[in-house]
């Protein structure tokens, strides 16, 4: 019983559940479909979801400080469009276009963060405005699809990086993995990361402890903007187009993945490997549907909707369980103390 209690109270419980769910889904896939066993199916999860992984990492940062970023999908679309426009219509080399769109995405995130923090506004509304703005701007650049045909860029897009001879991954997938690793290190082992956690835990405490709250909050939205732009590059490597409706609703997929991966919308709790598995679960379900062949891809949404609901309820239970445990442990601690102190 004690073991179970500790397991549930552990900060990784949500993560364990997510990983377990992923493994069950994968095992069922292997048992049902012959081709599921191939390692490449697993690698494809990373290739297909590279952009979503990167964007989800950014969103996780904002959720950690009890904020939100709804503009990520639109920034991603804007990035794709700007890349395509720059390379195809103006002939700028990728070596210049890629840094340029990264700067634009990052600056946009920083701007949103500054507005939110400076005027103490609802991040929901500001990033919603940002979402409309970017989506609109994308359409202004071009209402039609622009295909990317720059040979160097196409070359990168089709590059295959072998993994121990078991299969291959794309450049985008490698970038996504790097982003995951860097994010995990930043959150776990730097002052910035821990300050982000502290702000999510209790913002007024964080400022009374003398932590740089303003700076950190702006930085969080900046990181989210950067991740959206980087995700946009990864997305363009798969699609090789700029199109106004790219990444439509991706902000919601990202938030859902993050929550399934153990992030609390109330802030202060998130685990980067969990975030990865949150995305992978979505990927597995989509793979299922591909293998099955006749089901609509929208079934992914139905399953994700149900999962999200289950996970939110589970988190509520965990929180309740924890507070029960802490009230119990306070009793346990005071009882022996009372004994000997009263001679």
């Amino acid at each position: 019983m004690k073991f179970v209690n500790n397991l549930i109270a552990s900060k990784y419980f949500s993560f364990f559940v997510t990983v377990l769910l992923f493994m069950i889904l994968y095992a069922v896939g292997i048992m049902t479909y012959k081709g599921f066993m191939r390692p490449q199916v697993f690698f494809n999860l990373f290739i297909d979801n590279a952009a979503l992984i990167i964007v989800t990492v950014g969103v996780t940062f904002t959720l950690l400080i009890a904020g939100i970023d709804l503009s990520v999908g639109a920034v991603l679309a804007l990035t794709c469009m700007m890349l395509a426009y720059l390379m195809e219509n103006t002939g700028v080399s990728p070596a210049l276009a890629v840094p340029a769109v990264l700067v634009v995405g990052t600056a946009f995130g920083a701007f949103q963060g500054y507005i939110i923090t400076k005027f103490d506004l609802q991040p929901f509304i500001i990033t919603l405005a940002g979402m409309f703005f970017c989506r609109g701007l994308t359409a202004v650049i071009s209402r039609d699809t622009i295909s990317i045909s720059n040979p160097f860029y196409v070359g990168i897009a089709s590059a295959r990086i072998g993994v121990f001879g078991l299969g291959f991954v794309s450049v985008g997938a490698v970038v996504a993995l790097l982003v995951l690793i860097v994010a995990a290190i930043v959150l776990g082992y730097t002052k910035l990361g821990r300050t982000i956690f502290a702000i999510g835990g209790n913002e007024s405490s964080a400022s009374l402890m003398g932590l740089p709250v303003f700076k950190t909050k702006v930085l969080v939205y900046t990181i989210s903007g950067f991740c959206s732009a980087l995700g946009g590059i990864a997305y363009s490597l798969i699609m090789l187009t700029g199109y106004n409706l790219h990444g439509l609703g991706m902000e919601m997929d990202a938030i859902a993945s993050s929550v399934i991966g153990g992030t609390l919308l109330t802030g202060g709790v998130a685990f980067i490997p969990g975030t990865l598995f949150g995305v992978l679960i979505q990927g597995v379900i989509l793979t299922f549907i591909t293998f099955q062949g006749t089901l609509s891809a929208w079934w992914t949404k139905i399953v994700i909707g149900a999962l999200l609901c289950v996970f939110i309820i589970m988190q509520a239970f965990i929180t309740a369980h924890k507070s029960r445990l802490s009230s119990k442990s306070s009793l346990e601690q005071t009882t022996p103390k009372n004994g000997p102190a009263n001679p």
């Binding site: 300050t195 835990g201 007024s204 009374l208």
Partner: peptide, 26 residues
């Protein structure tokens, strides 16, 4: 005025964490 989602040690040292090779030395 502490953060309940952080560990006890972190609550004491946050903002002044000891470092090793540029990273927090837990």
């Amino acid at each position: 005025n502490l953060c309940s989602n952080l560990t006890v040690a972190e609550n004491i040292f946050i903002g002044r964490q000891p470092k090793k090779h540029g990273f927090i030395d837990w």
